[in-house]
Design a protein around this nucleic acid. Structure first.
Lengths: 214, 214
DNA sequence: TAGATTGTTAATCGATTAACAATC
DNA sequence: TAGATTGTTAATCGATTAACAATC
């Protein structure tokens, strides 16, 4: 029963792009789409899109293409979007506040139900309609509400301490925005979002471009 | 004079992690660091770190390691951090506001000098100490201030229109946070930050983990 | 039938990992 | 000298691209 196909993480990163477009098509009443049409809209490489759709394991029809709603539910299933994802957010600073107000997260299946911080000037307030609670209340709430996912947007210095508490509170997955590799037990998964890394790549590309001109 | 080494983008993404640690060491007065020590701190793979440092083109000394400040300036030079990066931000929504208040950006060499929006309820206000101006003022200001980089945090629907204006205004690099592939002339570089993609990977890992348990 | 499109298998390319050599 | 560490070259692995087959 083990899955033979090796999962392509880069492909998974592209899935939301497809979802965004497919939902738009769906809302416009379009039932079928060909890869050629997808490529035109998304400006991706032909073979990439073809491979990605093939990887979802559903069949298209020649001359017609893929059924839009079949593609959508295949992607949902692939990503585990069928059960809706509720998460706590820890660290209501600039970045944390942003994620609390970032509609795209809910659009793509993640709902932040509450935020936590240790800063008294933040605790008790609402940000984008969501309550900021004291971090000490997290373990109880997590158990009571059955929350299994957490978004970590605290400074690098506190990240490991926060993670330790999360693990004890029964959190199973951490989306980590701090610039710090976390030490976690094997049963807890972690995905690092390295924004500073993205910035570095941006700078590097800029430099290369300028370098070429001179 | 052309560079022979192929640049490893993944390595570039890791550089800020090194910088963060190296700066801390530097401030503590530590002069030399070995890769072994770096690996312990950062929890990265031995060979990755070794290769990354080698890629910077500076020499370490056996038994002693690398000179901390040499490493730092090598990374700065590699990324083009020597000249400081000033940027405009377009789209002062949740995500845009966050980036305006996100200290890490300045820490890693990018200074947002002003933000732009078309929403009258935002224009004229200050967010995290930075002015939000009307988008129509961008072209003039960009030329007057010599700004060459822009951060795009507008919704996918307006992203291309914004990009077109930026190109005309002489912007040479775009850090694109919208879920939309931009159509740009070859001389303008673009780096896409796909946060929804990161979320998709996070969900996928969560699903895999839960799937294994059952 | 011809053409457009899906589907699959092989080749290439880039990044990581492993193995080994060099040196203080 | 022995050991720790840097430095380099080769092997593996994953993702993309190319080539070709199948079919409506």
């Amino acid at each position: 029963m083990e899955s033979k196909r090796t999962h392509n993480l880069q492909m998974i990163r592209r899935l939301p792009l497809y979802v965004k477009l497919l939902r738009k098509l769906h809302s416009e009443g379009i039932e079928y789409i060909s890869t050629t049409a997808l490529i035109n809209e998304l400006k991706l490489e032909t073979m990439l899109v073809r491979k990605d759709l093939a990887g979802l394991g559903i069949a298209g029809r020649q001359k017609i293409g893929y059924k839009v709603n079949e593609l959508l539910s295949a992607i949902d299933a692939y990503l585990g979007w069928d059960k809706d994802g509720e998460a706590f957010l820890i660290g209501a600073g600039a970045l944390g506040s942003a994620l609390m107000g970032y509609e795209q997260l809910e659009e793509f299946g993640l709902k932040i139900v509450a935020a936590f911080d240790v800063d008294d000037s933040k605790v008790g307030k609402e940000i984008h309609g969501k309550m900021v609670l004291h971090f000490s209340k997290l373990p109880n709430l997590a158990k009571r509400m059955g929350i299994k996912a957490a978004i970590v947007t605290v400074p690098a210095e506190s990240a490991q301490k926060v993670a330790d508490v999360l693990v004890l509170a029964g959190i199973k997955g951490i989306w980590n925005f701090s610039t710090k590799e976390l030490n976690l037990p094997p049963k807890v998964i972690c995905h690092n979002e390295n924004i500073a890394g993205g910035l570095a790549v941006f700078f590097f590309k800029l430099k290369q471009m300028n370098g070429e001109e001179s």
